[in-house]
């Protein structure tokens, strides 16, 4: 029994869904969909972990014993970084914080844009990074199609940016010497 348990642990492949500090029920609803869960399970993922924020829609928990995806959720956590690190696939809202934290860890990422936001500039970043093949971009409606059609091997690793060019210009403007 112990052996099987260890084997299970080592083969744990987590899909982590994060909505950030606000709420994004349409995303939680979209992942808590039997077709999406079946597709994820079919692709070899074993666990679905949802950070649901202030959302009111509660996903259906599942222990995953009956040959399907195990589902669990929480509202907020101070150790999101650890959760991200343990994930094999991240499905995230379009906030730049979550996007860059995930990309820096080199995790495959699907960004889901919240189309209900009033001033919706968020899609710009996700679309640009999707054009550059650093992530996949979807809406709650197209999530299933995106998961169906995604090829993780087509993703290009993101190289972290550099603030030094700005710092150099600021220093020069103020008359500080270059380093």
């Amino acid at each position: 029994m112990g052996d099987t348990h260890d084997k299970m642990e080592s083969e744990k492949r987590i899909v982590f869904v994060t909505v950030g500090t606000t709420s994004f029920d349409t995303l939680v609803r979209a992942v808590d969909n039997s077709e999406v869960k079946r597709e994820l399970f079919g692709r070899g993922y074993t666990h679905l972990l949802i950070q649901m924020g202030r959302g009111s829609y509660t996903p259906t928990k599942s222990s995953g014993e009956d040959g399907c995806l195990a589902v669990d959720y929480f509202t907020f956590s101070s150790s999101i970084a650890d959760t991200l690190r343990s994930a094999s696939l991240v499905i995230s809202h379009a906030g730049s914080g979550s996007i860059f934290e995930t990309l820096r860890l080199g995790k495959p990422l699907i960004v889901v844009v919240n189309e209900d936001l009033m001033d919706n500039h968020q899609s710009e970043l996700a679309e640009e990074l999707a054009d550059r093949k650093h992530l996949f971009c979807a809406s709650p409606q197209t999530l299933l199609r995106t998961i169906n059609g995604m090829h993780l091997e087509s993703l290009i690793p993101y190289h972290p940016g550099d603030a030094r060019p700005v710092a150099k210009l600021i220093n020069r403007f103020l008359g500080f010497p270059d380093d």
């Binding site: 730049s96 710009e124 679309e127 600021i170 403007f173």
Partner: peptide, 12 residues
């Protein structure tokens, strides 16, 4: 001296 760096989220 005022320095403004537009956020990375602003692409277009």
């Amino acid at each position: 001296s005022t320095f403004y760096v537009e956020s990375i989220a602003r692409v277009r």
